[in-house]
Nucleic acid binder design. Structure first.
Length: 685
DNA sequence: GTAGGGTTAG
């Protein structure tokens, strides 16, 4: 042992200085060893506190804790205990922080920092109950009105959906600062109450406080949530006028807001102006494009992000997968999945996006395999898998998944029931549908929303139980919306319940639909009821609203590019070949017994013209393209923006037989798997 | 040794 040490240890002030200068762990352990062998240090308590703090800072938390626990407890050691708590919190072990908090020696009196750190740990864990124990202990210790303790408590409530409790704490706080206010603004925004968030900001301004960058981020998010373009722009103006720092977080929330409102040009401009872009700002832009029908732009940005040298994180791949799902890009989706396996952690959110991608690109089997392989499944993952089965017409599979989910202790929510009821309705499982609808309302206390009512009315009405569907509506829904009434009306038409049909049609017309498909259905009902005056009236409406018809559009992926077809469009380079294929198929189909169902053409035209229109429906053009360009027996996956009409449904069955192909069509509602002249949905669709 | 901010799965 070097001879100068005793003198060194007898001089606690230089030693303390050394310890607070963040020495390396190796130096620390040496000093510690020397302190142990020499009992000559003059202030052991103080030194162990310094040593423990230094250990905590250097990252050896167990050494820090044992140093503290080994020294006699003293009031001065609270700072060191706090350092330990903070290090646990920072290191991502809030549970350890709470353990240390609970194990504080009785002689150590926790201070404002201790309680604040313990509350932060509760925020990370979402542990409201422990948070309230901490709050009570803080009150007893005299920190009831401490601004740090109160702000942390506010944050705990705000982050975990207890805004009511947050408001109570906020109202009794004697002093409030920017942090207090921003916690409330952000809390309301994240709780889905943007109007209250903006009101909070107004109150803050009324009390003479100016919003800083953090408060403004909450306000910007609230504007994005309300979709208020004017307010959003005025907040942006306010930031510029007040010379606020346009850091990457502010820029990202602004660009996110513009994109959410639909102003993509503005969003892109802001993105270009952002100097220190990071993965979050890229992801914000990519995800907004992906979520708003601009999948191709999203994928372009996803590539650009990689070119710029940033490796995509889970947020980016989730958006890229969403874009792949939207376009039906199975190959690209698979390669993103590969990238995830090689480079990223497969967390629940990412897995859900991958599973959804496989299903939406037509590969339910891959989705199921991955789902079965995943250990811990959250609510959304279960909901997605149930929805996937439903969309592919596997009602019974959806139901057994639902049972399994409950067995696993996951509580179904409104979305679970929407997926389940939709699955049951696509498969015509009437008794099950009625049973689970009742269960949803009575046992789970979930109020039926439009999405649930559409499913159950559709299920009942299509199965001939039109009156029962109507009774259910009168008892559960005061103001049925157009989609609900449409479900009822088509049941009336198919089952010749014309009286109820006419009154339903009347209700639909009162709601002034501008969708030509809806009007056509109404007109068909009146025609069936021989109410020709009404037919004329509705036909006139259809003419007036003709421009609002969404054109049918189908697409198919080929060699990484999307080929999109609209009925009248002749711009595709293979247009002529495609039409030749279509008419060749048409004549072969007719030989096999196909009869065109011209009732699916809503225009007043000659039969021959109607037949030709049917044969050129966009999905048939896409299928013809697929047949022309892919090898024998290759499976075709076509995506259509509207529903497949009854005639195309018949025709594609024949085509699958003639061409000996498996053809998958994803329409606006569900998947149809055609093979060997039949469709997996049996003709129940 | 202390409190508040941006994206992302149904």
């Amino acid at each position: 042992m070097p001879t100068h040490l005793p003198a060194f240890l007898d001089a606690p002030i230089p030693l303390r200085r050394l310890l607070t200068s963040c020495p390396a762990l190796r130096t620390l352990t040496r000093i510690h060893a020397l302190l142990i062998v020499s009992s000559s240090a003059s202030s052991p308590n103080l030194l162990s506190s310094c040593l423990a703090t230094a250990y905590a800072r250097a990252g050896d938390l167990s050494a820090a804790e044992s140093t503290l626990a080994g020294a006699p407890a003293s009031p001065s050691s609270i700072a060191a205990w706090n350092a330990l708590l903070a290090a646990h919190s920072r290191g991502g072990s809030p549970d350890e922080a709470l353990r240390v908090f609970r194990a504080l020696p009785p002689a150590v009196r926790p201070d404002s920092t201790t309680f604040t750190l313990a509350l932060s740990a509760c925020v990370r864990l979402g542990d409201l109950a422990t948070g309230e124990v901490v709050r009570d202990r803080a009150s007893e210790a005299g920190y009831r009105n401490d601004i740090f303790v109160c702000s942390s408590l506010l944050n705990l409530y705000a982050k975990w959906g207890a805004m009511g409790d947050a408001v109570k704490v906020f109202d009794r706080m004697p002093r409030r600062d920017h942090v207090t206010w921003s916690t409330m603004v952000t809390g309301f925004t994240n709780a889905g109450k943007p109007v209250e968030a903006i009101e909070m900001y107004r109150r803050m301004r009324d009390e003479g406080l100016k919003g800083d960058e953090v408060v403004m981020v909450g306000v910007i998010k609230a504007c994005a949530a309300t979709g208020d373009v004017r307010m959003g722009a005025s907040v942006h103006g306010h930031l510029l006028r007040h010379g606020m720092r346009m850091d990457v977080v502010i820029s990202t929330s602004l660009l996110d807001m513009y994109a959410k409102i639909g102003l993509f040009d503005q969003a892109c401009r802001l993105f270009e102006l952002t100097t220190s872009r990071n993965s979050v700002s890229w992801n914000a832009l990519i995800s907004q494009f992906a979520q708003n029908g601009h999948a191709d732009e999203a994928l372009g940005l996803f590539r650009e992000m990689q070119v710029s040298g940033l490796q995509p994180d889970s947020g980016a791949v989730v958006s890229a997968l969403l874009a792949c799902s939207d376009l039906g890009f199975l190959k690209l989706g698979k390669s993103v999945h590969g990238f995830i396996l090689r480079r990223l952690e497969l967390d629940c959110m990412v897995v859900t996006a991958v599973i959804d991608m496989y299903s939406k690109c037509g590969s339910l089997a891959s989705a199921q395999m991955l789902f079965n392989w995943i250990g811990s499944k959250d609510l959304i993952l279960w909901n997605v898998m149930i929805a996937c089965c439903g969309a592919h017409g596997r009602g019974r599979d959806a139901l057994s998944l639902f049972q399994e989910m409950k067995k696993n202790g996951v509580r179904p929510d409104h979305a679970t029931f929407a997926s389940l009821l939709s699955a049951l309705s696509h498969s015509g499982l009437v008794e099950e549908g009625k049973f689970w609808f009742k269960c949803m309302v009575n046992e789970h206390g979930i109020e039926p929303e439009e999405k649930h009512l559409v499913c159950i009315v559709d299920l009942l009405a299509r199965s001939g139980l039109v009156e029962e569907a109507n009774d259910l509506l009168t008892s559960t829904c005061t103001e049925p919306t157009i989609p609900i009434l449409v479900a009822l009306l088509s049941g009336c038409l198919n089952n010749k319940k014309l009286e109820l049909g006419e009154s339903t049609a009347e209700k639909i017309l009162e709601l002034q639909p501008d969708d030509v498909g809806v009007l056509a259905l109404v007109s068909n009902l009146y025609a069936a009821a021989k109410n020709w005056e009404k037919v004329r009236e509705v036909r006139k409406l259809m003419k007036d609203h003709g421009s609002k018809k969404v054109p049918g559009c189908s697409s198919i992926e080929f060699r990484g590019a999307l080929h999109t077809f609209v009925m009248e469009d002749q711009s595709h380079p293979q247009h002529k070949e495609i039409l030749r294929t279509v008419s060749k198929l048409d004549s072969e189909m007719r030989k096999m017994g196909y009869v065109p169902r011209t009732e699916f053409v809503y225009h007043d035209l000659e039969e021959g013209v109607k037949e030709q229109l049917l044969s050129r429906h966009s999905e048939r053009l896409a299928i013809a393209f697929g047949l022309l360009n892919t090898g024998p027996r290759t499976r075709l996956v076509v995506i259509k923006n509207l529903r497949v009409c009854g005639d195309c449904h018949d025709a594609i069955k024949y085509i699958s037989k003639i061409a000996d192909r498996e053809i998958v069509v994803r329409d606006a509602k569900r998947f149809h798997h055609f093979k060997d002249g039949a469709c997996s949905c049996g003709d129940y669709w």
